[in-house]
Design a protein around this nucleic acid. Sequence first.
DNA 1: TGTAATGTTTACCAATCGGTCAAATTATCC
DNA 2: GGATAATTTGACCGATTGGTAAACATTACA
Lengths: 214, 214
Amino acid sequence: MAIPRAAKTQRRTRIQEEKEEVILEAALDVFSVHGFRGSTIDQIAEVAGMSKPNLLYYFRTKEAMHRALIDRVLFTWLEPLRAFDANGNPESEIRSYIRRKLEMARDFPRESRLFANEMLQGAPHVEDELRGPLKSLVDEKAEVIRAWAKAGKIAKCDPYHLIFSIWSTTQHYADFDVQVRAVLGQEHSGEGRFEDAARYLEQLFVDGLRMRHT
Amino acid sequence: MAIPRAAKTQRRTRIQEEKEEVILEAALDVFSVHGFRGSTIDQIAEVAGMSKPNLLYYFRTKEAMHRALIDRVLFTWLEPLRAFDANGNPESEIRSYIRRKLEMARDFPRESRLFANEMLQGAPHVEDELRGPLKSLVDEKAEVIRAWAKAGKIAKCDPYHLIFSIWSTTQHYADFDVQVRAVLGQEHSGEGRFEDAARYLEQLFVDGLRMRHT
DNA sequence: TGTAATGTTTACCAATCGGTCAAATTATCC
DNA sequence: GGATAATTTGACCGATTGGTAAACATTACA
């Protein structure tokens, strides 16, 4: 008797690990572009190079697949913010946070689009994570920023909206990639656009937060 | 003989105008949340309060409906950028551009999400508009900003990435509304968040562009 | 008021959707 | 090598998809 997803042995087979990896990779391809409802199991199966029933052997439903994908990606996605160090130098912390977020937009655009799709749909699958872990993490880091401002290390500003603006500006280069490339034109659409963006954003945020001694 | 969409008289009936309006309104509701592929004609018909064949009498295909919607919304959406005045005061022009974009995010979030969905999918339906009219408009305004910088009216910065960052930060409050509200928590999720955002963003961009006389 | 054009509905279609099932195949372990 | 468990497949299911055909109802206009 075949029991899907190792319900019996509790231990995952080599084949299971490999196939689940392949499937989630394919699912990321599809979900990130078409969102949950716009994606089909057939399409994911085709990208994964296996038959639909075979895919459904590993993930019993489309939702289970999406769920597993979100879970896996969510942790990685928040890594840069988690690395934000309260004891570091404010300017360099913010600078490196921007750089890391921008690198992720460049290197993991599908992950960014997966979340963007989820947000556009009203986060029906992750709203709990937003209100729970995400909010806690942001609250914590916002407090750090607020403390820096209080100590006169950076200019006063709303730390939540600061974080929002760093998120939005950096992820924009992943989520709106087509638009960015179309507007920049063919000559400026090389990978150099990420360095231009990094230069610009670091200037924007760091200069804006520098204390004005006037 | 019934010929859809007044192919014969070339003039639109009162009923046609009304129904097409109702349909596009419903289509905006649905497309903006689920994207093109994730939306169904049945769903739009239900929201529009009419039968599917009746809806298909006005728009022969799902694509035609989407096309009409995009066309109608695109023009309005670029209005703030078009209003960007080369002869105005740089600081107040940028300030009011931010304010207008933020007002649109607040008042027309569905329109914002419609485009966001389209971008995430690689703009399969509007890529021409991006490379054509949009790029032209941005090129024009970028030149204005560049001229201001050259004249010493504002600090030097990449005008394209400046525009991108204004787009992304403002539209974030429409597209990622769920996340924003979840992170801000119930107490700060009232409509006041737009005013907080406006204050923050005006400070961020205007201070960042102010010339430093040090 | 009659009539032609416009608008609406019911019934339907083939294709695709998410998902199941049982049989066949392959891997694992003694 | 054989038993057993894990994996894969093709055939299939009911529901939903985008869209059509034709009958029916309503409107506009002479």
